[in-house]
Amino acid sequence: MTSTSLPPSDDARDRAAYWFARLQSGEASAGERAQFEAWRAADPAHARQYAEIEALWQAAGTLDAAQQARLGRAYRAPSLPSRRRWLALGAGMGATAAAALVGVKLWPLPEEYARSIATARGERQELSLPDGSLVSLNSGSALRVRYDAGQRRIWLEEGEAFFTVTRDAGRPFVVDAGTGRVTVLGTQFNVRREGDAFSVAVAGGTVRVERGPWWNRQRALLTAGQGSRYADAASTTPDLDVQAAIAWRDGRIVFRDTPLPQALAEMNRYLPDPLRPRFAEPRLAALRVSGIFDTANPKALLAALPRILPVSVQAGTAGTVDILPR
């Protein structure tokens, strides 16, 4: 287990700087991420200070490699005592950003709009935003919204959402999905997050996808009809089926030669109490499914399996479902 070395001060900005640097390093453990989320949720001031650190980092995104390295060294310098190291981080961020953005206000202007929304399993919601943009949130999903004078920002904490974005050249629309970030001006696109993995499907317009740690940020453009799944900084699955990916908005689950375990996992997203499939033989897990099912009746997949595959289905106890050969 990775140990954390929190700043000696309880100052919210110090803590925010620590967590930002730690999470951007790509080395934070699942336990550390949970600790960060608990810290951020404990006080609105924590969330505000962290958002400001993120905004500063984005403002410094135009720095050249030498300037970015200088910022990184300010955080990592091992010879500095802990308190001086934190002061160096602040100084490094401020100095390098100021050098690139002279005369530009680094901290975001006062917050104009903030909202959190979540859905239970089997539930969907829509949220209209102040600029006319629309968010459709799929089953078992959660996100946070923050608008200010310079940016429209979404944090997709888990699950899936479809965004119809009103064009505003002066305020980009940014969706953070864990290890990835999607930036647009005006378009329609879908983002799905599964832990550290995420996928993007573009229904209209163009989006910029960024992923990976700050020192090795990778970028790609996706246009209408294109989609990709990103498992980590080095793994990409291109040619995502966009129409299948966004079919949930019409209440449909679309499978096209989908591995059976993956199809059953997708079914579970729409059940209040997920089922636990058990395969009697390993070869059954290699079977594939094609078909269109209703999100309002996800168990229809189980009923259909004996008709479309050489299997039988038997309900067990405690939510188990046995997949048997026939």
Rank of each mutant, 00 (worst) to 15 (best):
T119H: 07
G90W: 12
V242D: 01
D176W: 11
P325D: 08
G170W: 07
L305S: 04
R13N: 14
A224H: 01
L271P: 03
R307I: 07
V175F: 03
T62H: 12
T4W: 13
V207P: 01
Q125F: 10
R144P: 03
P325S: 03
D196N: 11
A177E: 04
Q188H: 14
Y50S: 02
R269V: 09
A233L: 07
W19P: 08
E123T: 09
L56D: 04
F162W: 14
R22A: 11
L222V: 00
L302P: 03
A296Q: 15
R211M: 09
G316W: 09
F255I: 08
Q226F: 07
P325L: 03
G61Y: 10
P7N: 07
A65H: 12
P274H: 04
L240G: 03
D43R: 06
L106Y: 01
A42F: 10
S235A: 13
R15F: 00
D10S: 15
R121F: 13
G150W: 10
R146M: 11
E194K: 14
P298V: 02
G205D: 05
Q151N: 11
E27Y: 07
Q125R: 15
D232F: 07
L302K: 03
T166L: 09
D322T: 11
G205F: 04
A97M: 10
E157Y: 07
P298W: 06
P277C: 05
A224C: 01
R256Q: 14
E281I: 04
A149H: 12
F279N: 00
G170D: 13
E123I: 09
G180R: 10
N297T: 15
E37P: 02
V209R: 09
S136T: 14
E158L: 09
V135T: 13
L156S: 02
Y50P: 05
E126N: 15
S5Y: 12
E281N: 03
G140V: 03
A177K: 05
S139W: 08
R307A: 15
V135D: 08
V311M: 08
A304Y: 05
V321K: 08
P282H: 06
N216H: 14
L143Y: 00
V321G: 04
A244N: 02
P310W: 08
A21L: 14
L127P: 00
D168S: 08
P78S: 09
L127Q: 14
R219H: 11
P298N: 00
Q35L: 15
V102I: 13
L80T: 06
L80D: 05
L129C: 08
A60Q: 10
N216P: 00
A118E: 12
D250V: 04
G92F: 04
R33Q: 13
S25T: 03
D64W: 09
E37K: 11
Q67F: 04
T119K: 03
L302V: 08
Y230T: 07
A177W: 06
L287M: 09
P274W: 05
L6S: 08
W248T: 01
T119M: 02
R193W: 04
S25K: 01
S79I: 11
T119N: 07
E158Q: 13
R193I: 01
H46S: 02
P298Q: 01
V321E: 00
L6F: 12
S139D: 07
M93E: 13
L240K: 00
L143H: 06
V182H: 04
M267S: 05
